[in-house]
Simulated assay, not measured.
Amino acid sequence: MPTSTVENYLKQIYIDQPTDEATMMPMGRLASAVGVTPGTATAMIKTMTESDLVVYEPRTGVRLSPEGESLALQVLRRHRLVELWLVEILGLDWSEVHEEAEVLEHAISDKVLARIDALLGHPTVDPHGDPIPTADGDVVARAHTSLPRCETDKPLRIVRIADQDPEFLTYADQNGLVPGARLIVERRDRIADAVTIRVGGHDPITLGTSAAERLLVEPADGQTADPR
Rank of each mutant, 00 (worst) to 15 (best):
115 R>Q: 13
95 S>I: 04
134 T>K: 15
97 V>H: 00
113 L>M: 10
126 D>A: 12
121 G>P: 06
117 D>R: 09
132 I>E: 07
93 D>P: 00
88 E>N: 07
120 L>C: 08
136 D>I: 03
140 V>C: 06
117 D>N: 14
108 I>G: 07
120 L>I: 05
121 G>C: 02
145 T>H: 08
85 W>A: 15
111 K>Q: 07
130 D>A: 14
131 P>V: 06
143 A>T: 00
127 P>L: 08
130 D>Y: 15
107 A>F: 01
119 L>H: 04
97 V>A: 00
111 K>V: 03
132 I>F: 12
103 V>W: 13
112 V>L: 04
118 A>T: 04
119 L>Q: 08
124 T>P: 09
122 H>R: 14
85 W>S: 14
119 L>D: 02
118 A>W: 00
98 H>Y: 10
104 L>I: 09
96 E>Q: 12
92 L>R: 14
96 E>K: 07
128 H>A: 11
138 D>Y: 09
123 P>A: 06
142 R>P: 05
128 H>K: 01
118 A>H: 03
116 I>F: 07
90 L>C: 10
103 V>Y: 13
129 G>P: 07
95 S>H: 14
117 D>A: 09
86 L>D: 08
120 L>D: 04
128 H>C: 04
120 L>E: 06
120 L>V: 04
133 P>Q: 10
92 L>M: 14
121 G>M: 01
109 S>I: 01
102 E>R: 12
122 H>Y: 12
92 L>N: 12
124 T>E: 15
140 V>K: 14
101 A>V: 02
89 I>G: 07
91 G>Y: 00
131 P>Y: 09
132 I>H: 09
97 V>L: 00
123 P>W: 02
122 H>P: 04
112 V>S: 01
88 E>Y: 01
104 L>M: 10
105 E>S: 15
108 I>P: 06
104 L>H: 05
109 S>M: 02
91 G>A: 01
88 E>D: 12
99 E>N: 13
118 A>I: 01
100 E>I: 11
100 E>A: 13
138 D>G: 11
142 R>S: 10
91 G>R: 03
105 E>Q: 15
126 D>C: 14
145 T>M: 12
87 V>F: 12
107 A>D: 07
128 H>V: 05
103 V>M: 11
132 I>P: 12
93 D>S: 08
127 P>A: 09
87 V>G: 13
